Amino acid sequence: TFEVERIVRKKIVHGNTSYLVKWKNYSSKDNTWETEDDIRTKYGDLVDDFEK
């Protein structure tokens, strides 16, 4: 199971928000862009903290 360590960046393309996710126990080269809906479902607190 993958676990988010932190959110690195945010991008908005054509009105759709995605977050660059750093995965726990993986290197930064393994970071992936994930949709806001996918990340918010399980890691809403991390998204809220990133947006502060």
Results as ranks from 00 to 15, higher is better:
35 T>M: 09
3 E>Q: 13
48 D>E: 11
44 G>K: 13
3 E>C: 08
17 T>Q: 03
33 W>V: 00
20 L>N: 03
4 V>I: 14
7 I>V: 06
5 E>D: 07
47 V>W: 08
30 D>N: 14
9 R>S: 13
38 D>K: 12
25 N>M: 06
28 S>Q: 09
29 K>A: 13
46 L>I: 10
41 T>C: 10
50 F>I: 02
26 Y>T: 14
1 T>I: 13
39 I>L: 15
43 Y>C: 04
40 R>Y: 05
44 G>P: 15
45 D>K: 13
43 Y>I: 04
4 V>W: 01
14 H>C: 14
35 T>N: 11
2 F>M: 15
23 W>Q: 00
3 E>L: 07
42 K>E: 08
36 E>P: 01
28 S>Y: 13
49 D>F: 09
26 Y>E: 07
30 D>M: 14
40 R>Q: 04
36 E>F: 06
32 T>C: 04
32 T>E: 00
4 V>K: 00
16 N>Q: 15
29 K>P: 06
16 N>I: 15
50 F>N: 03
33 W>R: 00
6 R>D: 07
12 I>K: 07
16 N>H: 13
16 N>F: 13
8 V>N: 01
41 T>N: 11
12 I>Q: 08
15 G>P: 00
20 L>T: 02
35 T>V: 10
46 L>W: 08
4 V>G: 03
47 V>N: 02
6 R>K: 14
45 D>S: 12
23 W>G: 00
30 D>K: 13
35 T>C: 09
16 N>G: 07
8 V>S: 01
36 E>H: 06
8 V>E: 07
13 V>D: 07
48 D>S: 09
18 S>L: 15
48 D>Y: 07
7 I>T: 03
20 L>P: 01
6 R>V: 12
3 E>G: 06
44 G>Y: 08
18 S>N: 06
14 H>S: 11
13 V>L: 10
10 K>R: 08
42 K>A: 13
10 K>F: 06
38 D>I: 10
41 T>I: 13
27 S>Q: 10
50 F>G: 01
11 K>M: 09
7 I>E: 03
51 E>S: 02
40 R>H: 03
19 Y>T: 01
25 N>K: 06
17 T>L: 09
10 K>P: 00
32 T>Q: 02
44 G>W: 12
49 D>S: 10
45 D>Q: 12
47 V>D: 02
40 R>G: 04
3 E>K: 05
6 R>H: 13
43 Y>G: 04
31 N>Q: 09
22 K>C: 03
46 L>V: 06
19 Y>S: 00
52 K>Q: 11
45 D>A: 11
35 T>G: 06
37 D>H: 13
3 E>T: 07
3 E>A: 06
12 I>V: 13
6 R>S: 11
17 T>Y: 04
29 K>S: 11
